[in-house]
Amino acid sequence: MGQRAVRHALAGGLLAQPWRGVVVPSSDSLKMTTRAEAALLLTGPPAVLSGATSLALHGISVVDEADIHLTVPYARRVRSKPGLVVHQSDYEPHDVIEIDGLPTFSLDLALADFLCRGDKPTAFAAVEEAMRGLPPDHLRKLRENVRDRIVDRASRQGIHRALSLLALADGKAESPPESMLRLIVVEAGLPAPEVQYPITDIEGKLLYVLDMAWPARRVALEYDGFAAHEDRQAADAERDRRMAGRGWITVRAAATDLRDPARVLRALREALRARSA
């Protein structure tokens, strides 16, 4: 284009400059893959996308971070910039794969890294999402690979936390908020619930599937996502009434309870205490 044309396009808004030294089409400037490629161009090789960016490329939807994360070897001196987080770590060629032409860490390595260093609820939901729908043998292999990556880390920071989160994860939750809610419950010191617990009639016909349950005490915890439940209050109330007729106490949680879980935890403690007596 030439320097003059580039300056004109930048001034006119046709091009955007996420960081000095690299320009992208303004229409694509908010796309994660475009910003990731721009970061790689800015940094130069060797560099690999990592952390939240790597997980997003692997299709983990719960990871929603605007900053681009990449890792360079210790021998390189590259500084982070606004919107670009640079990590340093030595890695092997077999640790890197390509997704959409972009070098990124393999899923097991990216999960191990995020379990150690990422936001705790998001990290737990991410590994659960990665496990969701996998055949048992594939799930077992993924767990083993992630665990090996965790224990082999040169830095010991966050390893205990990562192993605890990995041990709790089973991939049964139907959504990231359900995973986060289960983590809240367990970390509050309550017994670990069974996930996706089926309720059947006397003939074995499936009636309901509970998000989380303590079957021995007949206490259920249901997460009401806005999109799925905004028009179902009456149906949910009728379901709770029918479950009460079967001897169950149902506690319902919403998105606001993920930010402030005091109400839900109080209701669960009261229900479990009543059933313990």
Rank of each mutant, 00 (worst) to 15 (best):
A5H: 11
A9I: 04
G12D: 13
L14H: 13
P18Q: 12
P18A: 14
W19I: 04
V23W: 04
K31L: 14
K31G: 12
K31N: 15
M32E: 09
R35H: 08
A39G: 11
L41S: 03
L41I: 15
L42P: 05
G44P: 04
P45V: 11
P45C: 09
P46G: 08
P46A: 06
V48G: 03
V48D: 00
T53G: 06
L55Q: 07
G59Y: 03
I60F: 04
V62F: 02
D67W: 05
H69E: 12
T71M: 01
V72M: 06
Y74K: 10
R76H: 10
R77N: 14
V78N: 04
R79N: 14
R79V: 07
S80A: 02
K81Y: 03
V86S: 05
H87I: 05
V96P: 01
V96G: 00
P103G: 06
F105P: 00
L107Y: 02
L107R: 00
D108W: 00
L109A: 06
A112M: 03
F114N: 02
F114K: 00
L115A: 09
K120L: 07
P121S: 05
A126F: 07
A126Q: 08
M131F: 11
R132G: 01
R132L: 09
D137H: 10
H138S: 12
L139C: 03
K141A: 03
K141M: 11
L142C: 03
R143N: 09
D148Y: 07
R149C: 06
R149H: 14
R149K: 15
D152Q: 15
R153C: 01
R153A: 13
A154M: 15
A154F: 15
S155V: 10
S155P: 08
G158E: 05
L165C: 09
A167G: 07
L168E: 09
A169Y: 02
G171F: 08
E174Q: 14
P177K: 07
P177N: 13
L181K: 05
L183R: 07
I184Q: 08
P191T: 10
E194Y: 07
Y197F: 15
E203C: 13
K205A: 13
L206A: 11
V209C: 04
W214M: 06
R218W: 07
E222A: 12
Y223L: 06
Y223Q: 07
Y223P: 01
Y223K: 08
G225P: 06
E230Y: 14
R232S: 07
R232Q: 12
A234M: 12
E238T: 11
R242W: 13
M243K: 13
M243E: 06
G245S: 14
W248E: 01
I249T: 14
T250I: 10
R252S: 04
A253H: 08
A253F: 04
A254G: 12
A255I: 00
T256E: 06
D257K: 03
L258A: 05
R259H: 02
R263C: 07
A267I: 01
R269I: 08
R269W: 11
L272K: 09
R275D: 03
R275L: 07
